[in-house]
Computed example of a mutant assay.
Amino acid sequence: MKPDHALSADEARDVNQRRASSPMVVHEVVRLQGEEELKRPILSMVLSGMAAGLAINASLLTELYLRMRLPDTRWAELIFLLGYPVGYVIVIMGRLQLFTESTITAVLPVAAHPDWENLGRLLRLWSTVLLANLLGVVIVAALMANEVIITHDQRLIALDILEKLPRQEGLQTLTLGIPAGFLMAAIAWILPSAKGSEFWVISMLTYVIALGGFSHVVTGSSQSAFLWLNGVMSLSEMMADFILPALVGNVIGGTGLFAVLAHGQMRSDVKAAEQDADAAPPS
């Protein structure tokens, strides 16, 4: 009687194909999402990116509302940081365009077929979505600063809370932006396999970003813009100490680390699949 682990050549080949298909499928799903993003018209990118910038402020508002109702103790941080994932859940599950997600999704098509046309499409997407995200963030920050969507007392409490947060220098912001970019790219990579668990994946990984105090260029800009519009921080300080270094850190973490590693592990399999497809006789 043949033992369970003694497989025939055909069975062993079938096991290998099934085992290898999972990462290949994830890679292809994320790559196709990137292709769709790269092909979107400029106006679609602007509107979707601005909507994401508006929605991501739900994280800041929810955090502030929770902080206002909790005592000033160390354990309270574990509770009010639960508000941080709210904006991400809206944006990611609502399929809005957030810059940090595109550091992996839009990069895989370029990594698979590196040429000047794809690189140009990537830079077009990144610049459009980032500017649209930041515009949405500034609009909500202006509404908060002018007490349109929050009360006078809430604005004063928000200012008091945000002014007490430790101010980061540019280099520190950059280094803290790397793990944030990595975790955001990880969300985009995991979601194709997380059917039915998307909410928990997004909430868990973005909660880690909040707990670690990592720098996310879009979400963190909502805090910086609010302080700038209230005269606490200058525009040059906001750009030099947060937005630019956080942007670089997020790109390093999302593209330089996660996207390169994710594509690198599949590179030989992707090439082999392309060669098999080219060699297959036409149907």
Rank of each mutant, 00 (worst) to 15 (best):
M1P: 14
M1I: 13
K2L: 12
D4E: 15
S8I: 06
S8T: 15
E11F: 04
A12D: 12
R13Q: 13
R18D: 13
R18V: 09
A20M: 10
S22H: 12
S22T: 12
M24R: 10
M24P: 10
H27T: 10
L32W: 09
E35D: 12
E36T: 11
R40P: 05
V46R: 08
A51Q: 10
A55E: 07
A58Q: 11
S59C: 02
L60K: 03
L64M: 15
Y65G: 06
L66T: 04
M68S: 15
L70I: 06
L70G: 09
R74W: 15
W75R: 10
W75F: 14
E77S: 13
E77K: 14
L81S: 11
G83I: 01
G83F: 01
P85S: 03
I90K: 06
I90N: 08
I92E: 08
M93G: 05
L96R: 11
Q97S: 14
E101K: 01
T105Q: 04
T105S: 11
P109E: 09
A112V: 14
H113Q: 15
P114C: 08
W116K: 14
E117R: 15
E117L: 14
N118D: 08
G120P: 00
L122A: 08
L123V: 14
R124L: 07
W126V: 08
V129Y: 02
L130M: 15
G136Y: 08
A142P: 03
M144D: 06
M144L: 12
M144R: 04
A145F: 07
E147L: 05
V148L: 09
V148F: 08
I149H: 05
H152E: 15
L156C: 10
I157A: 15
I161Q: 13
E163C: 11
K164S: 15
Q168D: 09
G170R: 00
L174N: 00
T175V: 12
L176C: 05
G177E: 00
G177R: 01
I178H: 03
P179R: 03
A185H: 02
A186G: 09
I187F: 06
A188D: 00
A188L: 01
W189N: 02
I190A: 09
S193W: 07
G196K: 08
F199C: 04
S203Y: 12
M204R: 06
L205P: 09
L205D: 04
T206K: 05
T206V: 05
V208S: 00
I209E: 03
A210P: 11
A210C: 02
G213N: 00
F214Y: 11
W228P: 03
W228Q: 13
N230S: 14
N230W: 08
S234R: 00
S236R: 10
E237L: 02
E237S: 10
E237M: 01
A240I: 09
D241V: 00
A246I: 03
A246W: 04
G249S: 01
N250G: 01
N250H: 00
V251W: 05
V251C: 01
I252R: 01
I252Q: 05
L257K: 05
L257F: 13
F258D: 05
F258I: 07
A259G: 03
V260G: 07
A262K: 09
R267I: 02
S268V: 10
S268A: 11
D269S: 12
V270S: 07
A277M: 10
A279Q: 07
A279V: 02
A280Q: 10
P281G: 00
P281D: 04
